[in-house]
């Protein structure tokens, strides 16, 4: 194998291994801890919308779980991105390695964690007498790839820009909160008033989250949201790597 490629892969392996070790240091507790957050959110929304507001939906708890887990992956990947390069200043200033490995690995380990949490989703489905379908076999890898590209693009973009404008951290948090409520995660698209439906597809995360939930809840992928999701993934990835490539030559002097 090409020597540079070999080293690139080894870098990814070593850095991912490090992240996983840190995350699952007390292995089982680490896992419970990080599935705890989306589960707690699901509980909060269930109480607020089902118990209190009496939303007219069957299986609302399962519905929440199927949307909140993929959302949580994206949210985690984006929220840590402002500090990614900053936290590695000491080596970025001294060693000439491909720095986009850092956001790559960050998103990769969030993805691995999400894959592990699919078990939880499957568990809830069994409790609701639903079973995984054959579509999962191609649907999950496809959506994993699409979401990976989306999150990796966003992460490269934010991590790079934040070196130049150091106040992106709070801005990112605010933006993610807004995006969360504008994305059909805790409500179905069918409840969005007709005249706003158009905007759902303008949200880069909307079609992707709809696709995940369709895959888990109904066991199938709809063509339209998947196409939109792929389109946004390509757009965000292109934008992120363009910004990264334009700015990365200056990382060494700005840190």
């Amino acid at each position: 194998m090409n020597k540079r490629l070999r080293h690139y892969i080894d870098l990814i392996i070593v850095l991912t291994d490090k992240e996983m070790k840190l995350r699952y240091k007390s292995s089982i507790l680490g896992y419970l801890w990080s599935i705890g957050h989306p589960l707690a959110l699901a509980l909060v929304f269930f109480v607020a919308f089902k118990v209190v507001m009496k939303i007219q939906m069957d299986n609302y708890a399962l519905f929440l779980i199927c949307g909140l887990f993929p959302w949580q992956w994206f949210q985690n990947s984006v929220t840590v991105s402002p500090t990614l390069f900053l936290n590695n200043a000491s080596i970025i200033k001294k060693v000439n390695f491909p720095r986009n490995i850092i956001p790559f690995v960050s998103v990769l380990q969030d993805m691995i964690h999400f894959i592990l949490s699919i078990l939880v989703i499957a568990g809830f489905m069994l409790a609701y007498h639903k079973a995984p379908t054959l579509a999962w076999i191609y649907g999950i890898p496809l959506l994993l790839l699409v979401q990976f590209l989306t999150a990796y693009g966003a992460s490269m973009f934010i991590a790079s820009i934040n070196l130049f404008f150091r106040d992106l951290e709070r801005l990112t948090t605010i933006f993610m909160t807004l995006l969360f409520y504008f994305t059909p995660v805790i409500y179905p698209v069918s409840m969005v008033p007709e005249r706003f439906k158009f905007y759902v597809n303008l949200n880069p995360l909307g079609p992707l989250m709809i696709s995940w939930r369709g895959l888990f809840l109904d066991g199938k992928l709809e063509l339209e949201p998947v196409l939109f999701a792929v389109l946004y993934a390509i757009l965000l990835y292109t934008l992120g790597s363009f910004v990264y490539r334009t700015l990365s030559g200056r990382f060494g002097e700005i840190l």
Partner: peptide, 27 residues
């Protein structure tokens, strides 16, 4: 590198050797 750069304080010396050496160019 300067003291501890590229090291992670929660990992062991052995784990840090692998991390650091790969960052610095070894397979």
């Amino acid at each position: 590198l300067e003291l501890g750069a590229g090291f992670n304080h929660e990992l062991t010396g052995r784990e840090n050797i692998i991390l650091n050496a790969v960052l610095l160019g070894l397979n």
